[in-house]
Simulated assay, not measured.
Amino acid sequence: MFIVSLSYTAPLDEVDAHLAAHRDFLAAHYAAGTFLMSGRKVPRDGGIIVADAPSRAALEAVLGEDPFARANLARYAITEFVPTMTAGALDAWRAA
């Protein structure tokens, strides 16, 4: 399991110009089962993605497809973790 923290490296007007394409990217990876949740940071200087990818390398390849990455609008910090405790609704992602 991974937490991805995006930090914008460009003004919000440039980010907003790519937002629709970024949301399409997110939707495709929700459909593929890679992304579990995402949203903007407060204050709006980036976003968070919780991902279930087979490896860090696989996740990095996916993130390289993000329109924000392709336009050099954000940097990505990836933290891998093992969910040993979860709320009931998240039991499917708990490590054995």
Rank of each mutant, 00 (worst) to 15 (best):
T9N: 13
E60V: 06
R70T: 04
A87K: 08
G64A: 08
L6N: 07
H22C: 09
R75G: 02
V62R: 05
D66H: 06
A58G: 11
G64M: 09
A10D: 10
V15W: 03
R23T: 10
R75C: 04
F68K: 03
G47N: 07
H29I: 05
R23F: 04
I3D: 00
P67Q: 04
E60H: 05
P11H: 07
Y76G: 02
M37I: 15
A28M: 10
G47E: 06
G64T: 07
I78A: 09
E14S: 13
A69V: 12
W93T: 09
A69G: 02
G64I: 10
P11L: 00
I49W: 12
H18A: 13
A17C: 03
G39V: 05
I49L: 15
A69Q: 14
Y8Q: 01
A32R: 15
L59P: 11
A77W: 00
D45F: 00
A20M: 02
T86E: 03
A87C: 05
A61R: 15
A89Q: 14
A89D: 13
R75N: 06
V15I: 15
A74K: 02
N72T: 01
G47Y: 05
V4N: 08
F68M: 04
A21R: 14
P83E: 12
D13Q: 04
N72P: 00
A77N: 12
V82W: 02
A21F: 10
D24M: 08
G64F: 13
I48L: 14
G64R: 11
R75I: 11
V50W: 13
Y76K: 00
W93G: 02
A17N: 09
R56Y: 02
A20S: 12
H22W: 11
H22K: 10
L12M: 13
M85E: 13
R23Y: 02
A87Y: 05
G39M: 07
D24K: 15
L90H: 07
P83N: 11
E80Q: 14
S7P: 01
L36R: 14
D45I: 04
A28L: 07
A21C: 09
S7A: 13
F68D: 03
A57G: 09
E65D: 14
N72C: 03
T84L: 12
D16I: 04
A96F: 10
A21M: 09
L12F: 01
D16V: 06
L19F: 11
A57W: 00
I48A: 11
